[in-house]
C-alpha cells in the first residue's frame, strides 16, 4: 500500500513518517522544538508542532518531507503505540543519559518495533541531555554497543544547546531514502536498466534530467 504511493511521490518529493518514542521526562518535546526552530524553548506559531511537525529537507538534490509524530511517553499509553507507529519509515528513540531507566525503555521499544515492523524501519537512538555530563549514568560505550547490536545508529544530543539534533534527522532521512531505494529496486537490476534504456530512446529524457538538475 505504501509502495505505490512512494513511487508516485518519487518524482517530486519523498515523504516519510518518523515516530518519536521515549519516556516522559527525556525531553522529546524539547528535541522536536529545537529541531524545528533551531532554538530552545521559544514562542512558536502553531502549538501543535511539538506533537506533530513536518520538515522539508533537500538531500543531494532530492526533496524530502518528514512528518514527525510524537507519542505519549506515559506507561499507560504504551500498549497503544502501534496505532502511532504503523506505516512509519523511521523511529527516533530518545533516552536521558542521566536516567538508566529511560535507556531500558528504549530497549523495549526497539524490541517491539523490530517485532511489528521488521527491519524495514530505520532506527536512531538518541542519548539526550548530554549537557548534564556530570550526572551521566548511561555510558556512551554501552549505548553504542547496544545500538550496534540492533542495527541502529546512536547519537548524542542536547536539546538545550541544539547539539547533534540536525544530524539525527539528517542521518535518518538518508537512511530512509536508502531503504526506499533498495526496496523499490530489488528486481531493481532489471528495472533500472530498462529505465535507462527508455531514457536513451526517449527524445526528451525529462525525468532523468530533472533529478540531475534539481
Amino acid at each position: 500500500m505504501a509502495s505505490p504511493g512512494g513511487t508516485a511521490a518519487r518524482a517530486n518529493s519523498d515523504s516519510f513518517k518518523v515516530v518519536l518514542l521515549g519516556e516522559g521526562a527525556v525531553g522529546k518535546t524539547s528535541v522536536v522544538l529545537s529541531y524545528v526552530e533551531g532554538k530552545f524553548n521559544e514562542k512558536h506559531t502553531t502549538t501543535l508542532q511539538a506533537s506533530f511537525l513536518t520538515k522539508k529537507l533537500s538531500l543531494g538534490g532530492r526533496r524530502v518531507t518528514l512528518a514527525i509524530w510524537d507519542t505519549a511517553g506515559q506507561e499507560r499509553f504504551h500498549a497503544l503505540g502501534p496505532i502511532y507507529y504503523r506505516e512509519s519509515h523511521g523511529a527516533c528513540l530518545i533516552y536521558d543519559v542521566t536516567d538508566e531507566d529511560s535507556f531500558q525503555k528504549v530497549k523495549n521499544w526497539v524490541r517491539e518495533l523490530r517485532k511489528m515492523l521488521g527491519s524495514e524501519i530505520c532506527l536512531v537512538i538518541c542519548g539526550n541531555k548530554i549537557d548534564l555530563a556530570k550526572d551521566r549514568v548511561v555510558e556512551l560505550s554501552t549505548a553504542l554497543a547496544y545500538a550496534d547490536s540492533v542495527g541502529a545508529r546512536h547519537f548524542e544530543t542536547s536539546a538545550k544547546t541544539g547539539e547533534g539534533i540536525e544530524e539525527v534527522f539528517l542521518f535518518l532521512s538518508q537512511q530512509m531514502l536508502r531503504v526506499r531505494d533498495s526496496r523499490d529496486a530489488p528486481p531493481t537490476g532489471s528495472l533500472r536498466r530498462r529505465q535507462n534504456v527508455v531514457v536513451v530512446e526517449e527524445p526528451e529524457p525529462e525525468p532523468a534530467k530533472r533529478s540531475c538538475c534539481g
Binding site: 516522559g24 522529546k28 518535546t29 522536536v32 522544538l33 524553548n41 521559544e42 514562542k43 512558536h44 502553531t46 502549538t47 501543535l48 508542532q49 511539538a50 506533537s51 510524537d70 507519542t71 505519549a72 511517553g73 506515559q74 499509553f77
Partner: peptide, 19 residues
C-alpha cells in the same frame, strides 16, 4: 488538538496532548 497543546510553558508534546 492545537488548543490542547497550548500550555503556559509553550507548545506541548503528546505527553500533554493525550491525557
Amino acid at each position: 488538538a492545537r488548543a490542547l497543546c497550548d500550555t503556559a510553558d509553550g507548545p506541548a508534546g503528546a505527553d500533554v496532548l493525550l491525557p
